[in-house]
Design a protein around this nucleic acid. Structure first.
Length: 499
RNA sequence: GGCCCGUUGGUCAAGUGGUUAAGACGGCGGCCUCUCACGCCGCAAACAGGAGUUCGACUCUCCUACGGGUCACCA
């Protein structure tokens, strides 16, 4: 491949210009980290806040990591979370293609351009496959030694002929040995690094594919990205990116580096350690909006006291200055809280829709209205997945101990309960209309007539019809949902048990 | 280990030299009440440590400790 000035000029001319452009650039691993979702959200907010463009780019330069269907998961996540991208693999755009493997032929010319400029070089050193084998410490994957590397100062022309002869090579950046590089980051401020500690990172791999770091710089530039957000694991690479931009003579984008999300003080959130991914959370019955809202607040604070934000409200208040440098620990308890807030805020019909499949996991009987059950559930669950266990008594009365009828606060014991059940059975049996109002009125007036507090009557009835000490909803609602026949039959069984 | 970054209650966090150091989750107690939940009221709980600078430090500087990140032909 030869250096062609016109080709580069053409590439430059195609770069989209004007306005803020941000990108979410995940690698297709087959799942979405909550940290990734947060990065995507921030990138979206930064772009949309100023009417700019939000771009999805797939970073699949590691062919060995290809996961079937992984890009679909990413697209679905973004769409499901409401983070609509303006340009991306499936919808195209001015900087297409948006999948790095489809851009592979773009990277080599740029790497070679750097070689010609003397900012990079061909390296023919043997390399050892890097595999997990030895973990910590000084294993070293490869025999590259910057200080003694024979390729670093190879004359350009000589290298060329070796390549033409078919010798395998990589292209490495030639990091300066003196001076310092200062990176300016909107979150971390100015960070200066001594160039001598920088290594000659590989730009183009032996297979001709670019490394993540190189592809990132090329694509961010070619796609006209103005604000680059990424996790703090990349901050130590930032000086190398700057050096690359400088070598090309390109403008350096604004960096917005966000800190990590931790599982606890010493470990970051990781799927491998069993921490839930975004997809896991959804399948556990968390609502996308709730997760998004919670995650937004991990490492970012709007400043005020409001915590519940819709996406459009976030757009109003979001500001990079509220992003924190220190890592945040992911707290499921707090997510639970957000989720229950969101569940309670749902229109009842919508909640019924979402709850239905979970209710059906334990309530198979067709005669029972899942909408009615949903009604008593809405204020009582943190996540959808805790529904089945709460409503398992509707289908059939569970086995229970008569000891459940003893409840001090309600002033009942087994013998009082038996009396109450008999009275309730008669009163309910006489009822014509079976509505929650009629049931309610019947039982309340019965308690009054008997001269007992409501609880003394309600407790045994609820126990008899549910067989559980704790139920969603009270005696009245459960009677109503169960229907007259089933209610009377369960109360009868209760009386028999106490007999 | 080198380099970089961080450190306010258990957790998320506000705070930007002078505050009774917010608020939320969780915890605890209470109210409401036909159980539970919701809702409401209240309580406990924090500036990592040490030197400076200053009339005055959570806020500025330095050191220490602890934690994290990074040092791949992975991203």
């Amino acid at each position: 491949m030869t250096y062609d000035k016109a080709w580069f000029e053409n590439m430059e001319n195609k770069i989209p210009k004007g306005g803020v452009r941000t990108r979410f650039a995940p690698s297709p691993t087959g799942y979405m980290h909550v940290g990734g979702l947060r990065t995507a959200l921030y990138a979206y907010l930064v772009a949309k806040k100023s009417g700019g463009a939000f771009i999805l780019r797939i970073e699949d330069t590691d062919q060995s990591r290809f996961v079937e269907g992984a890009t679909e998961i990413i697209k679905e996540t973004l769409n499901g979370a409401g983070l609509k991208y303006d340009e991306g693999p499936d919808i195209g755009g001015p900087a297409a293609p948006y999948t790095q493997s489809e851009r592979r032929e773009l990277y080599r010319p740029y790497a070679e351009l750097l070689c010609e400029k003397g900012a990079a070089y061909y390296c023919f050193c043997e390399h050892k496959e890097q595999e997990s084998g030895d973990e910590s410490g000084d294993g070293e994957g490869g025999n590259f030694q910057l200080e003694t590397d024979p390729c670093r100062n190879l004359p350009f022309a000589g290298s060329k002929s070796r390549i033409d002869a078919g010798e395998p090579f990589v292209i490495r950046m030639k990091a300066p040995r003196d001076g310092a590089t200062t990176v300016s980051d909107m979150v971390f401020g100015e960070v200066t690094t001594q160039n001598k500690i920088l290594d000659d990172m590989v730009l183009l791999k032996r297979d001709g594919m670019p490394t993540y770091n190189f592809a990132n710089v090329i694509d961010d530039h070619l796609m006209g990205i103005t604000h680059v957000m990424r996790g703090s694991e990349y901050i130590s690479s930032a000086p190398k990116y700057n050096l690359l931009y400088q070598a090309f003579g390109w403008e350096i984008p604004a960096y917005i580096t966000v800190s990590l999300i931790m599982r606890d003080a010493q470990n970051k959130l990781s799927k491998r350690q069993g921490d839930p991914t975004y997809d896991d959370l959804l399948s556990q019955g968390y609502l996308p909006d709730a997760v998004l809202n919670y995650v937004a607040l991990l490492g970012w604070s709007p400043g005020g006291e409001q915590e519940i934000f819709s996406l459009s409200e976030m757009l109003e208040v979001f500001d990079v200055s509220g992003i924190s440098k220190s890592p945040a620990t992911f707290d499921l308890e707090k997510l639970n809280h957000f989720n229950s807030e969101y569940i309670r805020a749902l229109p009842p019909e919508r909640f019924a829709e979402l709850a239905e499949p979970y209710i059906r996991k334990s309530v198979k009987s067709g005669g029972i209205s899942t909408a009615a059950i949903a009604q008593i559930l809405q204020a009582r669950c943190e996540k959808l997945s805790d529904i089945p266990e709460k409503v398992d008594f509707f289908d059939s009365l569970p086995e229970y101990e008569s000891g459940l009828y003893v409840h001090k606060k309600s002033k009942t014991d087994e013998s009082i309960s038996k009396e109450m059940l008999s009275a309730a059975s008669a009163a309910l049996g006489a009822l014509g209309d079976w509505t929650s109002e009629s049931i309610h009125d019947a039982l309340i007036s019965l308690a009054e007539k008997l001269g007992v507090k409501n609880a003394t009557l309600m407790w045994p009835v609820r126990i008899a019809i549910s067989g559980k000490a704790v139920t969603p909803g009270g005696a009245v609602e459960i009677c109503w949902i169960l229907g007259k026949n089933e209610t009377l039959s369960r109360i009868g069984a209760g009386i028999a048990k106490l007999g």
